[in-house]
């Protein structure tokens, strides 16, 4: 079933990893993503108001999107970088952010914009964390894509 949706290679690899596991193991892998979420770089630390809050998540999470200036004549090929901030008391939210970071960071504008909206449902997590909670990841992805579209227009 997971094969029916086209995902960027890194996200596909993550989806396949989750698919091979039992439900409790999936939670453990999500926990690893939660713990692997990179720290905010200096320029964002302590300035959450420079980031966008993801209101679809039940815990406070903030994200920032950076789109490179080059190549100037091909906005679609500019690389995208993602930054997230979420407290350790919200490991599920951090785990969702960790998946999106590993799967999308460094991709081009075109590649990020092509990620289907149903991507969050491809990680076999519905049973382990409940479909309702997955809506938080859908919200994150939508906000990332919106910012990428906005920031690649110049």
């Amino acid at each position: 079933m997971t094969d029916t949706v086209e995902l960027p290679a890194a996200l596909r690899e993550i989806a396949d990893d989750f698919a091979e596991l039992t439900a409790p193991e999936r939670l453990q892998l999500l926990l690893e993503f939660s713990e692997g979420l990179p720290e905010l770089p200096e320029r964002y630390a302590g300035s959450l108001d420079a980031m966008e809050q993801v209101h679809e998540c039940q815990s406070p999470i903030f994200l920032a999107v950076e789109v490179a200036d080059e190549p100037a004549d091909e906005p679609g090929r500019r690389p995208v970088h993602l930054f997230f901030s979420a407290p350790p008391e919200a490991p599920t939210t951090r785990g969702f952010a960790g998946i999106l970071h590993e799967g999308l960071d460094g991709l081009t504008v075109e590649e990020v914009l092509a990620v289907p909206e149903v991507a969050p449902y491809q990680f076999s997590l519905g049973e382990a964390v409940s479909p309702l909670r997955l809506r938080g990841m859908v919200g994150m992805l939508n906000r990332i894509k919106r910012q990428v579209a906005l920031k690649s227009q110049s």
Partner: peptide, 22 residues
């Protein structure tokens, strides 16, 4: 918990997880 993973990050010794959704 509200957060389904919080128990897995560390819990009171001997405690078991009960998830409201599942």
């Amino acid at each position: 918990d509200e957060d389904v993973l919080l128990y897995d990050t560390g819990h009171i010794p001997g405690a078991l997880k009960l998830d409201w959704h599942q």
